[in-house]
Write a protein that binds this DNA or RNA. Structure first.
Lengths: 347, 347
DNA sequence: GGCGTGTGTGAGAGCGCTCTCTTATTTCAC
DNA sequence: GTGAAATAAGAGAGCGCTCTCACACACGCC
């Protein structure tokens, strides 16, 4: 199958065929200046005839650039796959990366046992940079990347302060807190007064920030109106059940994700509660395949997930650029994207 | 960020520190025989002290092995991400690959324009093998891999015959046809007599095989009872709508995927039809996050998707092994895994 | 026509590793 | 104790590429 005698042409052979030196072929292949047109043409012809493709390993060995970026997902269990959120983000990353001729190396970890493997991989110089989704308040993965001298951008605001990890930890996140405020204000505007919150796991900054936004608008909310979920439909359902037990007359729910909102919706319907008449429901994320397809469709806080993935990739690529060009100093700073309310039928 | 002065130790430096030659260090690092214990110990100590990690590019340059496998997903649009099916499969692949110290390079294509890029990448010798999900009846991607001399395993039975692509096209698929037969027989056993089928897109072999299984049990079925979906909830809903228009008194539906079944379920409920009392519904795949969470939970045909991913990786890795060892000839053949009926509440 | 100046091309080192081949050392039979 | 066989360690070439530097050759100036 993988034919060991499968000989790819080398630079040397192309050079011989075109009657020039290796250096000249290299120049043409890499598009650098200073090769006279007719010569360049002859080289290109030789490249085509031989079907020459540069050997990346050899190139990497000397340039110390891989043209590859690792996407590290630290998710002990199924969440990476269950949640369309990651999927969309990876898609954005993939698009941006391939647009700049970079490859995406996917590193999934199952529990902290895999961290060492990831660390070794990053240190091995396989990739130029890393995009890390380090959920749960744990900075060991970014720390490894730092030690390995690999540029890093984190998905989501990290839960640790900068002083721990050096000057600037780059990350891309949406305005979770502001979005949550908008959600709650919308419910308030609808005349709802007993508003509950289904939070995400509170070891993640996204969950914390959304809860903080909720509290910004409704300070001093009865703790009975807040239940913690886990960003799964099941978790949303469980949290909804708990909330209804504690506060049977609640008239609105702000769920910290669409996926949890969909779980909550099932419970509400099973209890015979009408949405939005009896209970208004707002989600978060605007994951179309979820929010538009619940019954009724979800009012939610939209964040452009795919674009955030793109931004992560772009930020990393910029961090990777050689320092030069002082006339256009590269600004490297975390990015926080705006959110906005999308009103559908559920609230 | 990515510190250019970040100097990783080389073999040479480790050798100097341990007071041995480069070759000896290499032997120790690669675990080959013939280094006396005390020396090996000294080398290991030097490796640890210096934090030496082999440079993969240099290694690849001489061994012609990358320790990386490409996962190519040819899906013009959102399906890769919308459908948990791929996600689970990738997870299985990832597990198996990392267990054998191989990396997963994810290559997503958006339309055929990207094919060329993928072809170039495969030809560039970046990866040892490729796992291709080439949906739609199109063999240009596997063909590219073959031309590039890259070992390949396809996800799902390819739609072309072997004569087109040489001796053996390796693939892993489940017994779609047999599973479909089981589904329909189950409905028949429940006393249903007007059984409809929501098929997947019929340019994919999985859809065709499932339809064939349906027809095996119910030959000569009225074409009005068969509608084509697209493996999305929306498509399932549309197909269900069409079927109800054409055959208002149907009493059972076999959907070619759980995701489509969930769309169909919504339509049924909206029409006031009870499941399973009025219409029995069977899905396919047993995607837990879908099948267990519909209302009622779906009866479906289970295939072990993650395990299939593992098998793909394992098969590829075996194909990659050096030819040697005639005493244990490596058998390389497509794999078809069994399916089985999982009875829940919907039928 | 000699000399700088600039531009285009070639020669060659070297990236970090593996692996073959050679040399040094040990082991054991006689 | 000697020599052959077995084993351990080292020397060095070379994987395919980039990139610096030296060189060749054109041009315009005095």
């Amino acid at each position: 199958m993988s034919d060991p005698t499968f000989a790819r042409p080398t630079l040397e052979e192309v050079a011989a065929r075109a009657g020039v030196s290796r250096a000249t072929v290299s120049r043409v292949v890499n598009g650098s200046e200073g090769v006279r047109a007719p010569l360049a043409e002859r080289v290109r012809a030789a490249v085509d005839e031989l079907g020459y493709v540069p050997n990346q390993a050899a190139r990497t060995l000397v340039t110390r650039r891989n043209g590859a970026v690792a996407v590290v997902v630290a998710e002990p269990e199924t969440r990476f796959f269950a949640d369309p959120f990651f999927a969309q983000q990876v898609r954005g990353i993939s698009k941006e990366l391939t647009a700049h001729d970079n490859q995406l190396v996917l590193l999934l970890t199952e529990g902290t046992a895999d961290y060492e493997r990831v660390g070794r991989y990053l240190a091995g110089g396989h990739v130029d940079g890393a995009l890390i989704f380090s959920l749960h308040d744990d900075n060991s993965l970014p720390e490894m990347a730092r030690k390995a001298g690999v540029a890093t951008v984190i998905g989501g605001r990290p839960g640790w302060s900068d002083s721990e990890t050096g000057p600037t930890t780059l990350y891309v996140d949406c305005d979770n807190r502001g979005g949550a405020r908008d959600a709650v204000r919308h419910l308030l505007g609808l005349g709802r007064r007993r508003i509950a919150h289904i939070a995400g796991p509170l070891d993640q900054t996204a969950s914390i920030d959304r809860l903080d936004g909720f509290r910004d608008v409704l300070p001093g909310t009865d703790p009975a109106l807040i239940a913690e979920g886990d960003f799964t439909p099941e978790g949303g359902a469980r949290a909804m059940t708990v909330l209804l037990e504690r506060v049977p007359d609640l008239d609105a729910v702000f769920a910290a994700s669409d996926v949890m909102a969909s779980g909550a919706l099932r419970v509400l319907r099973r209890r015979g509660l009408r949405v939005p008449e009896d209970v208004a429901l707002v989600g978060f994320d605007d994951i179309v395949s979820v929010a538009e397809w619940t019954d009724p469709p979800l009012t939610t806080i939209r964040q452009d997930i795919e674009e955030m993935g793109r931004m992560m990739a772009r930020l990393l690529l910029r961090a990777l650029e050689p320092a030069g060009r002082p006339e256009a100093p590269v600004v490297l700073a975390p990015i926080v994207t705006p959110t906005h309310l999308v009103v559908r039928a559920s609230a």
